[in-house]
Amino acid sequence: MLKLDSISLVQFKNYSYSSFLFDHRIVGIAGKNGVGKTNLLDAIYYCCFTKSYFARSDGQNVLRGAAGFRIEARFTVQGEPLKVVCILRETGKKEFLVNDEPYEKLAQHIGKLPCVIIAPDDIQIITGGSEERRRFLDALLSQLDATYLLQLIDYNRVLQQRNSFLKSLADRKVQDTGLLDVYDQQLVHYGSYVFNRRKDFLTGFIPSVQKYYHQIAGVEEQLDILYESQLLQYSFADLFFRFREKDILLQRTTAGIHKDDLDIRFQQQSFKQIASQGQRKSLLFALKLAEFEALKTAKGFAPLLLLDDVFEKLDEHRMHNLLSQVCLENEGQLFITDTHEERINRHFSDLTDTYQVVCL
């Protein structure tokens, strides 16, 4: 089992210094808006992913007026203690240590402490553009497969270089496109692994999402999810050849795995176009619970589950179905925030006698 036993925050977001002990599997975090409930969840997420879920830059996580931050968390992983320390120096340098040993590369940590988070803005996975769904899928697969993460990092690095070169062709009126051949070969090398891993993984993942959607919604509704990729029609090398003139004209790479998407359809129509708010939220939670199940199966123990402000987003029926899934049918540690302590107590007491509420 994976369990977070304690965490201390120094100059992290709105926390000057605070420490918390967690002695139960199910933990509620209660407090008014603005007191730091989401920030506490984000600190837990930071220890698992070496970065914030909500802030784009590390500097945004520093307490206003301070020059850096420190997070220290103590976990138990399969019966063994594990200490995580993250320090952002005033110089902007970040240090990440596990059991007092620093990483050479932060990517080495991804997947060691599997974690699933559900936050209000995650509805963009359903309603937003394709990049939101790719980001969700990439975060999941990176926890499952270290090679996937490395190949994806290298693909994105070469993609940036190729896009910069395409812009230089127009700026300098350069006619020699030989360097594009080199970039294309590298993108094929890195991207092929990513494409095949996505395709194979989604074969089992999509039925899991459909199963959870029906359980949360409480009714059988026709939900179809299809993997969309240009590589399902063309080989990688042929793809770049076909789109080269367009790429040169538009000065960016218009074909590749960075254009992949999940086509979600409800009763054979676009899901985000016709689904109700409740149906969209049910699908979001289904995606996250399927992620939880995939990580649990691969790791041999349940990941941490972080739920931010979900009581406000679901009706009582869907909320009960969700909590039944995460509290009763999974043994992983759960952290859930709410503005009302009595609502946390009411929902949890209906399901279990053993839980903890932290009031901020």
Results as ranks from 00 to 15, higher is better:
E132C: 09
E101I: 13
H189E: 15
I117H: 00
H189N: 14
Q185I: 05
K199F: 13
H109A: 12
K105A: 07
D176C: 05
V188C: 15
Q124V: 09
R197C: 14
I153T: 04
A170V: 13
T177H: 13
D181R: 15
Y190Q: 08
S168V: 04
L149K: 03
E131W: 05
Q124R: 14
Q185Y: 08
E131F: 11
V188G: 05
V116T: 03
R157M: 09
L159G: 02
V182Q: 10
Q160W: 05
L150I: 11
A107H: 10
T177S: 12
F165C: 03
Q160M: 11
T147N: 10
Y148P: 01
R197Q: 14
V158R: 07
N163L: 04
I126Q: 07
G111M: 03
R135L: 08
C115I: 00
T177Q: 15
I125E: 06
V194P: 09
A139C: 10
R135G: 01
K112E: 08
I118N: 02
D200C: 07
Y193M: 02
A146K: 11
L187W: 10
I153D: 01
Q175H: 13
E131I: 01
G178W: 06
F165L: 12
D176M: 08
L140C: 05
L180K: 12
Y183G: 04
A170D: 13
K105H: 14
A139M: 12
V182F: 15
L106N: 09
K173C: 06
Q175G: 15
I123F: 07
D176G: 06
N156D: 11
I126C: 08
S168T: 10
L159P: 01
I123E: 08
R162H: 03
A119M: 05
F136R: 02
D145I: 01
L141A: 01
T177E: 15
D181T: 15
Y183Q: 05
L140S: 04
Y183A: 00
V182R: 09
D138I: 01
L137K: 05
Q160C: 08
N196L: 14
A139K: 14
S130C: 09
Q185V: 08
E132W: 06
Q108G: 07
Q161K: 11
F136M: 07
E101H: 12
G128W: 05
I153P: 00
Q108P: 01
G128R: 05
G111L: 00
L179V: 14
D181H: 14
Q185T: 12
E104C: 06
P120Q: 10
V158F: 07
Q143H: 04
H109G: 03
P102Y: 01
L144M: 07
L140V: 00
L166I: 08
D176Y: 06
R172K: 15
L141W: 04
D138S: 04
Q161A: 11
V158D: 02
K199D: 14
L166Q: 03
K173G: 15
A139T: 09
L187G: 10
A107M: 06
P102C: 00
Y155R: 01
A119V: 08
D145W: 02
G129S: 08
N163E: 13
S142V: 08
Y155T: 02
F195E: 10
Q108S: 11
K167D: 07
S130W: 11
V188Q: 12
P102T: 09
R157A: 10
A119T: 10
V194H: 09
D138M: 02
A139Q: 11
S168I: 02
D171M: 13
K112H: 01
V158C: 06
E132H: 13
Q143F: 02
R134Q: 10
R134I: 06
I123V: 11
R134K: 12
K199A: 13
